[in-house]
Design a protein around this nucleic acid. Structure first.
Length: 223
DNA sequence: ATTTGATCATGT
DNA sequence: ACATGATCAAAT
């Protein structure tokens, strides 16, 4: 059990100390084991880093470090520093959505300050062999904020107008809306085009990998 | 049921 | 080859 960091400085110091270790080494220090593959426990690396760094919000709809206002995200990358996956941000509200402003949205709150931890994934390697990279703190620049806001507003407008069936991952420059559910038969409350309540496949906001690649490249330039 | 942590695996 | 759509487990 690692205590919560009392400051962002302390959090970053912990990041510097774990950079270069493998996930297997960190797991061993905590006395936990990692699976041979991630087909089932897909989020285990992220949860390992939460433990190592002292995050405590668990599955609650809060930033990982509530008192610091910092969200923790692992970023799986290849040897060329290219992200292997998009990054999940949060679920998309499908009801009571008309008056929501971007500044009050979960997307805006979660992405206000993100601690990115790149994790090197070699082809055909096991989870334990993944190498923890140098974490970096990100706050959206004015341009990035405007991009996020524009994408969010476009996607939310589609939700409000009831075009849920027509929303696909291709919409949005850096932020996209994709299914986020146990399976394609899952249903949650939503609002139809005529304003009537309907049931619909839950969706989540994701950052496209092309965007997180830019974040990483910029951080490595500064380093 | 929902949100967290994400990656899997199919379609294009 | 790549992104989109689909899926898995734990916590609450």
């Amino acid at each position: 059990m690692v205590t919560a960091p009392s400051s962002i400085d302390e959090l970053m110091q912990r990041c510097y100390r774990i950079a270069g270790f493998t996930a297997g080494e960190l797991a061993q220090q905590l006395g936990v084991s990692l699976p041979e593959h991630l087909q089932r426990e897909k989020g285990i690396i992220g949860q390992l880093l939460e433990q190592v760094l002292g995050a405590e919000s668990g599955s609650k709809a809060e930033p990982d470090f509530p008192h610091l206002g910092v969200e923790l995200k692992t970023l799986p990358i290849n040897a060329n520093a290219t992200p292997l996956e998009s990054t999940y941000v949060c679920v998309a509200p499908l009801t009571n959505v008309e008056l929501l402003r971007f500044e009050d949205s979960w997307v805006c709150r979660k992405l206000a300050q993100v601690l990115w931890i790149p994790v090197l994934v070699e082809p055909n390697s096991t989870p334990a062999e993944r190498v923890i990279g140098q974490g970096f703190l990100w706050r959206p620049s004015p341009v990035e904020f405007a991009q996020l806001k524009q994408d969010w507003e476009e996607l939310m407008e589609r939700i409000v107008l009831g075009g849920l069936d027509d929303i696909r991952g291709t919409h949005g420059e850096i932020l996209q809306l994709r299914p986020k559910a146990a399976n394609s038969r899952a249903r949650t409350a939503a609002v139809g085009a005529d304003g009537a309540p309907i049931q619909h496949l839950p969706r989540g906001f994701y950052l496209k990998a092309s965007f997180t690649k830019q974040l990483l490249a910029r951080a490595q330039q500064l380093a």
